[in-house]
Nucleic acid binder design. Sequence first.
DNA 1: TTGATTTTTGGGGTGATTGCAAAATTGGTG
DNA 2: CACCAATTTTGCAATCACCCCAAAAATCAA
Lengths: 213, 213
Amino acid sequence: MAEGLRERKKRQTKQHISDVATGLFMERGFEAVTIAEIAEAAEVSVNTVYNYFPTKEDLFVDREEEVVDRPSRLVRERAAGQSAARALMDQLRQDIRERHAYVGLSEGYDRFRRVIVESPTLMARLFAIQGKAVHQLGVTLREEAAADPEDPRPDFIAHQLVGLQNAVLRSIIRGLAEGGGVDAVAEDALRKVDVMESLLSDTVLNYAVKNTP
Amino acid sequence: MAEGLRERKKRQTKQHISDVATGLFMERGFEAVTIAEIAEAAEVSVNTVYNYFPTKEDLFVDREEEVVDRPSRLVRERAAGQSAARALMDQLRQDIRERHAYVGLSEGYDRFRRVIVESPTLMARLFAIQGKAVHQLGVTLREEAAADPEDPRPDFIAHQLVGLQNAVLRSIIRGLAEGGGVDAVAEDALRKVDVMESLLSDTVLNYAVKNTP
DNA sequence: TTGATTTTTGGGGTGATTGCAAAATTGGTG
DNA sequence: CACCAATTTTGCAATCACCCCAAAAATCAA
C-alpha cells in the first residue's frame, strides 16, 4: 500500500516545525526562544510541537540516533581483513576530505556551533550523545571481537576511538572559529589525525580484524 | 579576624539543606522529589534553597569542581621523572586499593548510583563533568609538556586517560550491581587496569615526563 | 456522505527557576 | 541594652518547559 497523505503531511509538519525552530535558534540562541514562539511562528499549537518533539532540545539536535549508531555501523560493515580502528579512521579521513558535516566542515556550521556552545542544555545533550556513542561502540566491539563480558578492552578501545573523533572535531571547530579557511582547516585536520593515530597502540589499531570469508 | 557566626551559620544551613535533599533523593529518586518538599523538610523557604544551590542538580552533585580538577592536579603534582599517565594510573590503582569513593567503591554507593542512572538530568550532568575533566586535563597536559597550541596530542591523551578512568569506574559499578563483593570487585578492577594500560601506546605512557630538578 | 481513525488544539495543571521588595536576623556601636 | 547597617530569609508574582485530558478538526475508507 502506498504511503497515505496522512503520513506525508505528518512528515511535512514535523519538518516545518523543525525548520522554523532551527531558524529561530540560529537567530537568537537556544534559550532565548520559547516553545510558544516556535509554535506561533510555525502556525501550530504548542501541543502540536510537543506531539513531534519530546523536548526542546530535540527541536535542534536532529539525528541523534544516527550519530550514536554510525561508529558501530561502520565497524560492523568494515571490510574483510580490516580492523575496527582502521574502519573508523578511514571513514574519518574521508569525512574530512569530503568536508562532511559530521566533522563540522560545512557551510554555516559556525553559527550552529555558537548556538550549541552558548547553551548549557545543548552542551549537556551533546556530551550525553557522545557517551552513548562510546557505550554503543563498546557493545559492538565486544560482539565483533567475540570478547568475554569481563574483558575491559572493547569499552576502553571504544573510548579511545570516539575520543579521537572528538578531538578532531574540536580541533576543526577551533580552527574554523579562529578564522581558518575550510580547506586549510581540513588539511590540518588530516595531519592531526595522523599524529593521533600514532598515539594508538598496535593492539588497538589491530583490534577486531574482520575475518576473511 | 576569626570567622564570624554568620559565615558559620551559612555553611551549616547550606550543609543542612544538602543533607536533607540527598536523603530525600536517596529515598525516592531525583525527579520524584520537588524543591518545595526539600525546602519544607529542611525548614527553610524555597528561595533559601535557591540562595545556596543554583539548580536542583547542584543539590546532589557535590564537589563537581574537585572531580574536574583532580586529574589535572595529580598531573601537575607528579613526581620528578614520572609521566602524566603514570601519575594518573598510580593514583587510580591506589584509589582502588583504598576503596575510594572516587572509583565507586564505598558503602552505599549502590543506591547512589541508582539515583543517578535513573535520572536523565543527572546523567547528562555527569557526562558534562567528564567532558570538562577531559578538557581541563588537556589544558594541563599542554602546559606540562610545553606543547604547541596546534599539537593535537595533549587533548587526545587526555581523552585516553580520562577514558580509562571512566571505563574502570563503569566496570566497578557493573561488578557491584551484579552483586560482587567489594574486595572481589576491587581486585578485578586492578586486573582490568593492567589490561587497559597495555592498550596505551608507549608514547602516551611516557608523555610529559616531569623534569628532574 | 458517513463513521472510524488520527491529528490538532484548548485548557488546566505541576514544577524549576528568577526577580523583587518586605521582613527577620545578625554584627557591631554607643 | 537599644539601634543602625549589612546580610539573609521569605513571600509573591511570573516565566517557561512539559504533561494530561477531552473536545474539535482533518483524513481515510467504505
